[in-house]
Amino acid sequence: MVSRVSGDVVTDVLRPAGALDGWAGRFAALPDSVTLLAEPFHAMVDVRTADPAALERLVGAPLPGPNAWSGGERVTAIWLGPDEWLLTSPFLSPAELEGAARETGAAALPDARLAVVDVSAQRTTVRLRGAHARDVLETGCAIDLLPRSFGAGSAAVTLLGQSGVVLLGLGPSDYRILVRSSFAAYLAEWLLDAASEWR
């Protein structure tokens, strides 16, 4: 990011550009019952391993099984497949997260075989909250989103509208949506359109 101060060019700390930078105004026009927020940059690292226990210390919890996520604010692990997880962190840089996965994995289980790849540029993150958040998702997602089957800790790699997404349940009426950057504008338009019913 470059900012101009009285004619001089001053280079600030570089901040990754988000695919939904510039959408805040349209998101802000939504009612409180459906709020959308383009979340700050999350580092994301794809891990493939047969030894998920090697990463428990980094995540702070056992790595999740199918259709679930685990971990905390610092590092989250999302199940993508039987030997594949997505680690995300809003606090670590992509290089730090990738390095931490390699180092803690090797320290915990020296024989563990891990494939660790930085995929931070692949997806961007949207937060959907409010009393009608689930109603909005249900207009374009076939997953059973009733709280009894999709609550806090649930995750699904699925379709929302015509776009592939990773959908995380954070709490009642609180969801995080990971969408590929090139689909982000489409999904934002889709969500705004779906939310218009509850305006």
Partner: peptide, 17 residues
């Protein structure tokens, strides 16, 4: 729409396959 049972993810819509 028809649901197909993925051995990992459970029942999902056929367009996911």
């Amino acid at each position: 729409m028809q649901l197909i049972h993925c051995p990992w993810c459970g029942p999902r819509e056929e367009v996911e396959f």
